[in-house]
Design a protein around this nucleic acid. Structure first.
Lengths: 142, 142
DNA sequence: CTCTTTAGTTATCATTTGATAACTAAAGGG
DNA sequence: CCCTTTAGTTATCAAATGATAACTAAAGAG
C-alpha cells in the first residue's frame, strides 16, 4: 500500500472530523463557561475520576492554568475535588450533580444532531459505520 | 441497531481523534504564528483558493477578526490576495511560495508521526483502515 | 532525618482571541 | 438611478488564554 496516499486520506479525514464536530458543538454555549472550561468538563465527563495533572497533560494546559480554570468550575459548582486516601497531595476530580445534569443536557443536544446526521442511513450502512469506527478506534486512534 | 449506543461510540471516537491529532500537532510551533493563524493556514492549504468569507465561516471567526489575522499572515508573506475578475469586492487567498514551503515542512513532520503510528501494522490491516476511513468519510463526516 | 521529587496553588503579566461599531466600495435589483 | 445587500476593513475594548516565578505541603529515597 502507498503509505503516502494513506496519509493524505488521514489528513482529509481528520479535517472532516474536526469540522463536523466543530459544527455540532458550535452553538452549545453554556452560561459562564469558556471554551477551555468546557473542554475540561468534557474531559472529566468521559474520564472521571481524573487528577489535575491528567487534565493538565491531556488538554495541554500548564498546571497553574489548569488549577485556575478548575477553581472557576468548582465555584460554579460543576465539579468537585475528592480526597484520595493514599496520597494527600493529589485529589480526584468529579462532576457534581449539577455538572452531571448540565453535561447530560449537552450530550442530549449533541445526540439530536447526531441522529439528524444519520437519519437518512439504513440498517446495513449503520452496521458498516459501527464496524468502521471500531476498526479505526482500535488500530489507528489509540 | 441501537442508535443511542452508536452515539456513545461516536463520542468516544471523535474524542480519540481529537486527542491523537492534538498530540501530533502539539509540538509544531511556527515562529510568529498563533494557533488561530495556523488553523487559517491549514484551511487555506487544503481548500485553496478560498475567500475571506469562507475562512470566516468555516473557522467560526468573525469577518473583522479573520481580516485582522489574514493581514498578519500576509505581512509574514505566507499567503497573498489574488484579485478575482468578476467581482471586485472579493479576492482569493492562496499560499505564497514561502507559505507552501512552510506547510510542506509541517505536513512532512506530521507524516513522520503518522508513519510511526502505523508502523506496526501489516498490509491487511492498512487495507482495513483505508476502507474504514472511506466509509466514515462518505457516510458520516460529509 | 534530610533531600529531592511530585502535586498543586497563588499571583502577575503579556498575548491572543472575541465582539462590536462605524466605515468603504462594489454588486445587484427594480 | 437609487436602494439594499454583500464583502471586506479599521479601530477599539473586553475577556480568555498562556507563561512564569515563587510558593506550600506531602511523598519517597537513601
Amino acid at each position: 500500500m502507498d503509505k503516502g496516499e494513506l496519509f493524505q486520506q488521514f489528513v482529509r479525514f481528520t479535517t472532516s472530523v474536526h469540522q463536523v464536530t466543530n459544527d455540532m458543538t458550535k452553538e452549545i454555549r453554556i452560561e459562564n463557561i469558556t471554551t477551555v472550561q468546557y473542554k475540561i468538563l468534557e474531559f472529566i465527563t468521559v474520564s472521571q475520576p481524573v487528577t489535575l495533572s491528567e487534565v493538565s497533560e491531556c488538554l495541554h494546559l500548564s498546571l497553574p492554568n489548569s488549577s485556575r480554570e478548575l477553581k472557576k468550575l468548582i465555584q460554579n459548582q460543576l465539579c468537585e475535588k475528592i480526597i484520595v486516601p493514599n496520597d494527600r497531595r493529589k485529589f480526584d476530580i468529579r462532576l457534581t450533580e449539577k455538572g452531571t445534569a448540565l453535561m447530560n443536557k449537552v450530550f442530549q443536544q449533541l445526540e439530536l444532531k447526531f441522529q439528524e446526521r444519520i437519519d437518512n442511513l439504513k440498517e446495513p450502512e449503520l452496521k458498516e459505520i459501527q464496524e468502521a469506527i471500531k476498526i479505526l478506534q482500535t488500530k489507528l486512534f489509540t
